[in-house]
Design a protein around this nucleic acid. Structure first.
Length: 599
RNA sequence: GGACCGGUAGCUCAGUUGGAUAGAGCAUCAGCCUUCUAAGCUGAGGGUCAUUGGUUCGAAUCCAAUCCGGUUCACCA
């Protein structure tokens, strides 16, 4: 906001000084002034030097002179250093800004755009529990939904459940063979884990059967096809598609167990969805759209009856859309789901939070929809994120080399407890409060850890190294927040701005460096929300909230709030820290991270 | 081989449309608790921004080539 104001002032000044030229705000480059120099904001002069054929320092002097004279309320002084015009902003500007935003609960919230946006995330398979890699997806999607909402969009959070296919049948076959009717109730095992166990079991048996066949002289490729357990799974898939009652009923039962398990995990993760899609419901629509495309001549049929689209003219390959036997593939389902989403909500934009290994798939999906003349094609946006890997490589559910999501959450909460007790900070809480606190700290650390880096960077997580609670972490921000709350308790004030009565303070006080830094940072909050939304990057908010906490800690170390130099200063500082706490809370809330009042 | 993504301090990462001496955190070292919470603060060391060339007043940022790592190009999802 302030930078825009400065740009506008600069344009007006330039226009006045050089009436024969035309200037626009986007020609002006305004940065925060480097700490080594005096000033708050810097206008870079070089872009105008060529245009106006003048010397940078002369232009700077003219411009600075004019700006300070003309905008005395905004600028107090200027300095020109080798092509850079450093402007010092009047402290009153920051103070009145603080006062102006005081009762503004919507601080940071952008104007409603009336854009309807769907964010699809999580989208699990129903044959195994969630693992650490899914967490990155879930936190990203949930945060992005909140960020886009704050940025003024009408957001629908959606989850597409991949509930059908051969992989589901694998768990079912293994369960039938080996479970003896075991249920989550009878075993006490969480439903998704129970089903996942049989998915792993399937693969163990499958491998053993292949090995046995090979030992009997069967070729490896042939063995993979002939293994009895695989044959059973394929038979089951055919039965499922044919609507076999028993298979369908088992499918429903086992999926039900998984859903119950997921429900628990989602609740613990603190995320939710407005709309659930099931691939078992959408693949038929996909098939219908493909048939239409065939009629239109966009698609073609091969001799074996399979249906394809030719994308070679776009530099891609041919892509299969229906098998020779008429059954659908992944892409077919996705085409159906994409259109369905669009029709259900009249979307302007449909965001898919999906790992970067599917970049090609998403590119093809969009292109196919475009060629089919589906209007939803243009609104599709793939938020691609890098996979989370273990030091040993990719996580593979079927081989059991995964860090389980539920275990990870428990582990983080345990670490939070351990560290709290170690720091001797577990006193003065009730048992319930402690449980809550450990959860807030542990889950916060986990979420922050996965959100703080740019989504497209892949990350390697070493389970042997626990996630830190110091430094660039949620804990750091939570601690700063708790400190602020502690001061407010002492001053008998509360967090909500509107509920506090201030004795008031004059709008003209001189600010220390530490005070000003916080106010400058606070001023940037709406801009940060905007950036996070347009870049679709929650990490922007992680960095911002961390910086606020850092600035507060520095300020806290240098100044006393309760024992400020005078009453006016105290009131100003109280207002500052409440705004700081509130801003940190709002930013973190978007990421699904809570900040405790005491820790 | 084609397409896409990444390469910044010992490690994990920031670095808005090109702007001043490239910044944090962790780790290492040196300080700071009688004072609103030390899960904190202050300071030090640590860099051929993968390489080379180009564009210009100016390049980690833009362009080209090269090297390294990853993903993908399935009748799996």
């Amino acid at each position: 906001m302030l930078t825009l104001l400065i740009k506008e002032a600069a344009v007006a000044a330039l226009q006045h000084l050089y009436p024969e030229q035309t200037f626009a705000t986007d020609m002006v480059n305004v940065n925060e002034t480097k700490v080594e120099f005096k000033g708050d904001y810097t206008v870079v002069l070089f872009p105008f030097v060529k245009m106006l054929r003048c010397k940078p320092d002369e232009l700077g002097k003219q411009l600075g002179e004019y700006l300070v004279a003309r905008n005395a309320a905004l600028f107090t002084e200027y300095q020109v250093v080798s092509g850079f015009l450093n402007l010092t902003v009047n402290d009153d500007v920051f103070i009145s800004m603080l006062q102006a935003n005081w009762h503004n609960e919507q601080f940071g919230k952008q104007h409603q755009t009336n854009k309807k946006v769907m964010v699809e995330y999580s989208s699990p398979n129903t044959n195994k529990p969630l693992h650490f890699g899914h967490l990155r997806n879930i936190f990203l999607g949930y945060a992005l939904g909140n960020i886009l909402k704050t940025a003024g969009n009408d957001v629908v959070k959606a989850n597409l459940i991949n509930d059908r296919g051969i992989h589901i049948c694998k768990s079912m076959v293994a369960w039938m063979r080996y479970a003896n009717g075991a249920t989550p109730q009878s075993t006490g095992i969480k439903g998704d884990h129970l089903v996942g166990d049989y998915y792993v079991k399937f693969n163990d048996v499958y491998k053993a059967e292949i090995a046995a066949l090979i030992a009997n002289g069967v070729e490896e490729k042939q063995a993979e096809k002939e293994a009895p357990i695989m044959q059973e799974a394929q038979q089951m898939l055919r039965q499922w598609e044919a609507g076999d009652k028993e298979v369908y009923s088992l499918w429903q039962t086992m999926n039900g167990w998984v859903y119950e398990g997921f429900e628990v995990s989602y609740k613990k993760l603190g995320v939710d969805f407005d709309k659930m899609y099931y691939e078992s419901n959408t693949y038929l629509l996909g098939k219908a759209i493909v048939e239409k495309g065939l009629e239109k001549g966009v698609l073609f049929r091969k001799e074996d009856n399979s249906v394809w689209i030719d994308l070679t003219a776009d530099g891609l390959d041919q892509k299969l859309l229906l098998r020779g036997d008429g059954t659908s593939v992944y892409m077919t389902q996705d085409i159906g789901t994409a259109v369905l989403k669009f029709n259900d909500f009249g979307l302007d934009q449909s965001v898919y939070v999906i790992a970067d290994e599917q970049n090609y798939h998403m590119q093809v999906l969009k292109l196919i929809l475009k060629k089919l003349g589906e209007p939803c094609a243009d609104g599709i946006l793939h938020l691609s994120y890098g996979m989370v890997e273990l030091p040993t490589g990719k996580m593979k559910s079927r081989e059991g080399t995964v860090v389980d999501a539920d275990d990870m959450m428990d582990e983080m909460v345990r670490i939070a407890q351990e560290q709290t007790e170690q720091a001797g900070k577990a006193d003065g809480f009730s048992e319930d409060e402690l449980k809550n606190l450990y959860n807030t700290i542990g889950m916060g650390a986990l979420k922050f850890y996965l959100l703080r880096v740019d989504p497209k960077k892949r990350m390697i997580f070493d389970p042997k190294e626990s996630i830190d609670l110091h430094g660039f972490t949620a804990t750091f921000i939570q601690y700063a927040h708790a400190r602020i709350c502690s001061i407010l308790r002492k001053e008998q004030m509360i967090l909500m701005p509107e509920a506090n009565q201030f004795k008031g303070f004059s709008a003209t006080q001189s600010l220390s460096k530490a005070e000003k830094d916080i106010l400058v940072a606070l001023e940037q909050y709406p801009e940060m929300v905007k950036t996070a939304a347009t870049e679709m990057s929650p990490s922007v908010l992680c960095n911002y909230a961390f910086r606020l906490a850092q600035l507060f800690n520095t300020f806290y170390d240098q100044h006393s709030i309760s024992k400020a130099e005078n009453e006016e200063k105290k009131q100003l500082r109280l207002m500052m820290i409440i705004m700081t706490a509130q801003t940190m809370r709002q930013a973190m809330k978007m990421l699904g991270i809570d900040l405790p009042e005491k820790m």
